[in-house]
Computed example of a mutant assay.
Amino acid sequence: MITPLRSPVWVTLGCVALVVAGGALLWLPFHTQSALDDWGTELRATGMPARAVVYDRVTKRKTTMHLRYELAGRTYEQEVGCVQVCLSAGDEVSIWANPADPGDFVTDFEQLSGHRGRVQGGLGAVGFVILIFAVPLLLSRVPFGRWFPRRSPAAPVPRTGPYRIRSKYKRSGPR
């Protein structure tokens, strides 16, 4: 007896679900980066401008700059990952802060505060690995033999004697 979950239809649907899940996970970091770019552009247009000072630079796994800035009489401290630019302690940088959340800002070199998109990047890598395994698995489920049958072999040539002579010229009649 065939168990219901091992039938060919369920296995094929599982392969399709893996490909869809892997594709969605791979798409996620690209979508997130696009949304973050749009948010940075919006902050530059509508945010409150300020000057921030780099008061510390920490290197653990990655290098991070710690910024200190003042908005509306309050002092804030936030970190920015060193992705494109990494300033030294004491350097100043222009920022545009979110009026609703002063801890959220964009720098003049287009870097957003905090470490955004790390989780999505990890999920994108997982999606890529899933696709590496799921696509060949799904292609192995496709019945190519049924859709593209092999051509039938040519009809056998009747033998007239002990030897078969192959020639590119046709015979003109019985010999």
Rank of each mutant, 00 (worst) to 15 (best):
93 V>F: 09
44 R>L: 01
45 A>H: 07
69 Y>W: 11
60 K>W: 12
27 W>D: 05
105 F>Q: 00
121 G>A: 09
40 G>E: 09
120 Q>I: 01
128 F>Q: 03
93 V>E: 08
74 R>Y: 05
21 A>E: 00
87 L>C: 04
63 T>K: 12
49 P>L: 07
69 Y>A: 02
15 C>G: 02
77 E>Y: 08
101 D>R: 10
70 E>N: 07
121 G>W: 02
65 M>D: 14
98 N>P: 07
71 L>W: 02
106 V>W: 01
43 L>Y: 04
160 T>V: 10
79 E>V: 13
19 V>N: 00
171 R>Y: 08
139 L>T: 05
124 G>K: 03
174 P>M: 01
12 T>G: 07
30 F>K: 10
47 G>R: 01
167 S>L: 09
152 S>W: 12
9 V>L: 15
109 F>D: 13
4 P>V: 05
42 E>G: 09
43 L>A: 03
24 A>D: 01
123 L>I: 04
114 G>S: 04
115 H>M: 11
169 Y>A: 04
23 G>S: 10
11 V>Y: 01
44 R>T: 15
46 T>F: 10
74 R>G: 00
60 K>A: 14
156 P>D: 02
54 V>S: 00
155 A>H: 05
66 H>K: 14
121 G>L: 11
65 M>Q: 08
169 Y>H: 07
52 A>K: 10
4 P>L: 13
76 Y>H: 14
163 Y>G: 02
78 Q>R: 15
66 H>W: 12
94 S>P: 02
62 K>H: 15
128 F>R: 12
25 L>Y: 00
42 E>H: 11
63 T>P: 10
33 Q>G: 04
118 R>C: 06
113 S>A: 11
6 R>E: 08
160 T>K: 15
68 R>N: 05
89 A>Q: 14
77 E>R: 12
81 G>D: 09
162 P>T: 15
171 R>T: 13
109 F>E: 06
98 N>S: 13
158 P>W: 12
11 V>E: 04
124 G>M: 03
107 T>W: 06
72 A>Y: 08
119 V>H: 10
